[in-house]
Design a protein around this nucleic acid. Structure first.
Lengths: 140, 140
DNA sequence: ACAATAAACCGTAATTATTCTTATTTACAA
DNA sequence: TTGTAAATAAGAATAATTACGGTTTATTGT
């Protein structure tokens, strides 16, 4: 079991949530992929090993993991996408491949350069994402 | 009738699309608001003057306007948002108020500063948006 | 180990935003 | 003014997501 998965399970326990096989498998699914996946990607993966798994289980756990800061989320093509949260110590943004959902980190954060333009506006959130096709997906 | 609306109607005609009252009113709706609106905002506005207007009409025209470059679009809270296209001569991004959808332009485009990080990645699109609450909406 | 209990889960129905379909109406050109 | 393609209405269909009532399961205290 990967380090991130172990940490995530500890975080669950620490917040009083229960350990279940389904949660472990969902976390493994994300832990083994450096990119964004949709709810239906998760569902496809999960229904191979749990016949008849409910939508509710997928979505409930995705939200739970997101609320606990285990996953990060973005919205793309009208669908929510999730991935394991990157190293939280440095704020960053992503290049996102539209084929495979894999990401590459961008160090630069444009927010640092535009404070002066934001007068009077209360900032709650910001998004800087670049969409395209990664090297691997270009050759297929 | 605003200048942008007139231009948009000319663009429609130029591409062989027909002039209709509904299209004019939809364009007026966007022309009078410097911010993003959803399909249901449009629908609410339109059904006051056209009882029984169809969803299809709203969505079909939104897509048409977008395809012709009359409107620009973004996605927010699982819902598509549209606004009159800003002056196309200078590339820019937006501060978006989550209460009223109004926007303020940001001149800086972070893409200029990160070419070196993009090696091997084919860029199709990018998004730089800041979400929050504008000055007017903070005081209500 | 065993029972109590709160959380997790299933099956399915409901919602929400959006798209599609078919028949009818309308704008506009000949 | 009439023919025709485009636009529309009405409502069904779809896709992603959320909600709900009943059942099962993980965990905690005995």
């Amino acid at each position: 079991m990967g380090k991130k998965v172990t940490e995530a399970l500890q975080k669950l326990k620490h917040h009083g949530y229960k350990y279940t096989d389904k949660r472990e498998d969902m976390l493994e699914f994300f832990g083994n992929y450096d990119g964004y996946r949709t709810a239906s990607d998760v569902q496809e993966f999960m229904k191979e090993r749990y016949d008849g798994i409910s939508f509710d289980t997928i979505y409930r756990n995705l939200h739970l993991f997101h609320d606990l800061g285990i996953l990060e989320a973005t919205e793309l093509n009208g669908e929510k996408h999730f991935r394991m949260k990157c190293d939280t110590s440095k704020h960053h943004h992503h290049l996102i491949c539209k084929e495979c959902g894999k990401t590459r980190e961008i160090e630069l954060c444009p927010m640092e350069y535009i404070e002066k333009e934001l007068k009077g506006f209360r900032i709650d959130d910001h998004k800087f994402e670049i969409y395209g096709v990664c090297y691997d997906c270009q050759s297929t």
